[in-house]
Design a binder for these strands. Structure first.
Lengths: 142, 142
DNA sequence: TTACTATTTGATAATGGTTATTAATGAATC
DNA sequence: GATTCATTAATAACCATTATCAAATAGTAA
C-alpha cells in the first residue's frame, strides 16, 4: 500500500490524515520484520521529533481494528506488529529473534488440509516456527 | 506426571521439594487450559493462603527452563503456560478465549510436510487457530 | 482566507503485570 | 537436633501500555 492508497483509505473511513498518522501507517505497512511500538517510535523520531509513543499505540490499534495489521504477542510479553494479513509462517530465530514471513502455495495447501481435519470454521491463525538463522549459525561456528 | 514423579524430578535436578513448589508443579502440569500466573495464584490461595505471586512466577520460569512447560504470549500481552510440549494445535475461541489442544497423528503428518517445505531445522513451533467455540455459538444464537 | 468544529496529538499520569530485593523460613544433610 | 543454603513471602521497583486532557490541527463551510 503506497502513500496515496493510505490517504484514500483513511479518508474513506472518515479519519483525518495527519502527518504523524501517515508516517506511522507507511512505516508499519511496509515493514516485514514485525517491529514493536518502541522500535517504530525510535525510528520515526528522527523525522518527527515531537511524535509521542501514545500516538504510535493509538495508530497501531486503529490499523488493527481496520484489519490492516495484526498483533503478535510473544513469550517475553513483547508485542510486535505484522502487516501481512494473509496466511504465512513466522520464521523466528531462536537466538537473535529476527523474524521473516514464509508464504507459498504449497504451505497454504498443507495448512488447508490441517484446517479441514480440525472440523471448525477458523477466523484466524498464527503459525510460528523457531529455528536458528544463518547469521547466528555462522557466529556459533566461528 | 504424578506427584511422585515430580518429587523425583526435582530431586534429580538438585532442587528442594517445598510444598508450594509441589503444589504449583502439580497444578500447571495437570491443567489443559493454559492458565495465567494470576489464575494459578488465585486457585492455589485456598489451599496455601500465604503463597506469593513471586513464587508462582519463579516456579513457572523454573519449569520452563527445565522444558516441562512452555510460555505462550498472546496479543493482549497476557502470558499463559502450557504443559504440553509435544506438537499440537492451540484451538482458541475468539470470543471467550478458552483454549484446548488438538493433537492427532494426521496433524503431525501434515505439519511435518510443512516443515520439510520450509527447509530449516526447527527447534520449536507454535500453532494457533482462532474459531468460535460451541458455548459462544449457542449464546449468540439464542 | 478566515472561522468553526470535531478529531487528533503530545505530555503526563495512572495502570497492571512481571521482576528484583531481602529478611525470615524451612528442606536436606550430617 | 544443629547447620547450611535454597526458597519463600512481602515489598518495592520496573516498564510497557493505557488513560487523561489541554493544545494543536485537519476538514469543512462561509
Amino acid at each position: 500500500m503506497n502513500t496515496h492508497n493510505i490517504i484514500n483509505f483513511l479518508r474513506e473511513k472518515g479519519l483525518k490524515v495527519t502527518s504523524q498518522r501517515l508516517a506511522i501507517c507507511s512505516f508499519i505497512l511496509s515493514r516485514k520484520d514485525h517491529p514493536t511500538a518502541e522500535q517504530i517510535f525510535q525510528e520515526l523520531r528522527d523525522e518527527y521529533p515531537t511524535i509521542s509513543l501514545g500516538t504510535i499505540y493509538k495508530t497501531l490499534h486503529l490499523l488493527k481494528d481496520l484489519r490492516l495489521i495484526q498483533e503478535l504477542g510473544f513469550n517475553n510479553g513483547s508485542i510486535r506488529y505484522d502487516p501481512d494479513m494473509e496466511l504465512h509462517v513466522n520464521m523466528i530465530c531462536s537466538k537473535c529473534g529476527k523474524i521473516y514471513d514464509y508464504k507459498t502455495k504449497n504451505v497454504k495447501n498443507l495448512w488447508d488440509a490441517i484446517l479441514s481435519e480440525l472440523n471448525v470454521k477458523p477466523v484466524g491463525q498464527r503459525i510460528d516456527v523457531y529455528y536458528e538463522c544463518d547469521d547466528c549459525k555462522n557466529i556459533n561456528s566461528t
